[in-house]
């Protein structure tokens, strides 16, 4: 025999506990009070920040350093366009599921960060009204040039122009990236450094091998010469030609 209306009373006890608990136990709260900006100022219209202020505000407009929303273009230290990592290879444009990236390759090449001269994006637009924040562009980029931003105050009164992020809006420094996604950026930088080191080591090894080969060749030549001299034979020494196979990238078959 259960109490008449016992289930209802039990439920009411639960809600009463929650009612009281919400005042004392912060864990219980579903919502948190929205914090005003420290300077007590609300943006009038999100698109209306002056550029410097927007850069400054970007610290407060990111949500958490885990979140992602729209892509941005990374550049290393220095002038954005001088150090932009993007080489306008257009892989992201092709792979983008909703087709929101638009790239125009530059006519000329530009040297960046000690690398050999490459193309750069003359136009790089992302239409964030179409972008669905899937991060596939980040994954397919072979140059680590595109990563996800987490700025959320993007509202604008201009439907077509305002939601179209141009190249200059998208350019963000690596420091900024470190600021918004510390863990991810550190991991990425480490990977780049590792890859670079590996490449360097490989290059070094290759150079050494070359050197060795050259030495061996010289030695062999010297020996051969000596031999030649000794035996007066008419045989030139042959250095082994390095076999260079260029693994062609598999065609996508489109």
């Amino acid at each position: 025999m259960s109490l008449l209306g016992g289930g209802i009373f039990k439920g009411m006890a639960v809600t009463l506990r929650n009612f009281v608990g919400s005042y004392f136990d912060k864990e219980r709260l579903t919502t948190k009070e929205y914090a005003w900006r420290t300077d007590d100022k609300l943006p009038e219209r999100a698109g209306d920040y002056p550029k410097e202020e927007a850069e400054q505000l970007s610290d407060t407009t990111t949500v958490t350093h885990y979140s992602r929303n729209f892509p941005m273009l990374l550049h290393d230290e220095g002038e954005p366009m001088d150090t932009v990592r993007c080489v306008a290879c257009q892989i992201c444009e092709r792979e983008c599921p909703p087709q929101c990236i638009y790239i125009e390759k530059s006519k000329d090449k530009m040297e960046r960060g000690g690398n050999k001269a490459q193309f750069y994006p003359a136009t790089f637009d992302i239409d964030v009204s179409v972008c669905m924040s899937c991060q596939i562009c980040v994954e397919v980029c072979p140059f680590d040039a595109i990563v996800m931003n987490s700025q959320f105050e993007l509202s604008t009164p201009d439907r077509f122009g305002g939601l179209l992020l141009r190249r200059d809006d998208l350019l963000k420094s690596n420091d900024y990236y470190h600021k918004i996604h510390p863990e991810e950026a550190a991991a990425r930088d480490k990977r780049i450094a590792d890859e670079k080191a590996a490449k360097e080591a490989k290059k070094k090894a290759a150079e050494e091998a070359k050197k060795k080969a050259a030495e061996a060749k010289a030695k062999a030549e010297a020996e051969a010469k000596a031999k030649e001299e000794a035996e007066s034979a008419e045989k030139p020494a042959e250095a082994p030609a390095p076999t260079h196979t260029d693994a062609k990238k598999e065609d996508n078959g489109e």
Partner: peptide
């Protein structure tokens, strides 16, 4: 169509 800034539709 949802017009995008680079679409032929635009």
């Amino acid at each position: 169509w949802e017009p995008t800034p680079h679409d032929e539709i635009l």
